[in-house]
C-alpha cells in the first residue's frame, strides 16, 4: 500500500478526547464522527482535510479513552495512514483493527512540518518528505499484526482464518 498526501501535524499526547470529544459519541456513524474530528484543538481540520491527507502526531498519540470512534473518525476523514513518534497502545490496536495503518518513527517525526507532502509505503515503512527531501524509516508491523493490517482489519482477518 502506497499513499501520497499533505500533512496535518499535531504535537505530543494527542488524546482520543480531542480526536473525537465524548459529546459526539452518541453516534458511531463514521461520517458524522469525521465532521467533528480534532475540533477541540483544530477547528480547520474537519472542513479542509482532503482525501489522502496524512495525519502526523508526536509521542503517545491516541492516549486516553479506548473509544474506537477515534481511529474511525480519522479514517472517515479520508486520512489513509497516521504517522507518529509512537502510539498509545489501545489506539494502536484499534487503528490496526479498523484498517487504518499506523507507522512509528520516533523523534524523526519532529522533522515533518505541517503542510509537507509525504509519500508513504506501508509495506516497506519508507516515508519520503517531498517538500524537504528527507526520508524516514518506520519499523514494519510485527508478526500477525501485519497479517491483520493486510486483511484490512481484525474482522476480515478472523473471517479469513476461521
Amino acid at each position: 500500500m502506497k499513499f501520497e498526501g499533505k500533512t496535518w501535524v499535531y504535537g505530543d499526547n494527542i488524546d482520543t478526547d480531542v480526536i473525537i470529544p465524548a459529546r459526539y459519541l452518541n453516534t458511531f456513524d463514521p461520517k458524522e464522527l469525521a465532521s467533528h474530528c480534532m475540533v477541540d484543538i483544530d477547528k480547520t481540520f474537519a472542513g479542509n482535510v482532503k482525501k489522502g491527507d496524512i495525519m502526523v502526531g508526536g509521542w503517545n498519540f491516541g492516549c486516553g479513552s479506548s473509544r474506537e470512534h477515534a481511529p474511525i473518525a480519522i479514517k472517515a476523514s479520508g486520512v489513509p495512514v497516521v504517522i507518529a513518534a509512537n502510539f498509545a497502545r489501545i489506539f494502536y490496536r484499534n487503528a490496526i483493527n479498523v484498517g487504518l495503518p499506523v507507522l512509528e518513527i520516533g523523534d524523526d517525526v519532529k522533522k515533518i512540518r505541517n503542510g509537507d507532502r509525504l509519500k508513504v509505503d506501508i509495506s516497506s515503512g519508507i516515508i519520503e518528505d517531498e517538500t524537504t527531501g528527507e526520508t524516514f524509516h518506520a519499523a514494519p508491523l510485527p508478526g500477525f499484526i501485519q497479517d491483520i493490517a493486510a486483511a484490512g482489519g481484525l474482522v476480515n482477518y478472523v473471517k479469513e482464518n476461521a
Partner: peptide, 13 residues
C-alpha cells in the same frame, strides 16, 4: 482495555 472491534471479535472467539 481494548477497542470495540476486539470486543466484537472476542464475543465470537
Amino acid at each position: 482495555g481494548v477497542g470495540s472491534t476486539d470486543m466484537g471479535v472476542a464475543m465470537v472467539t
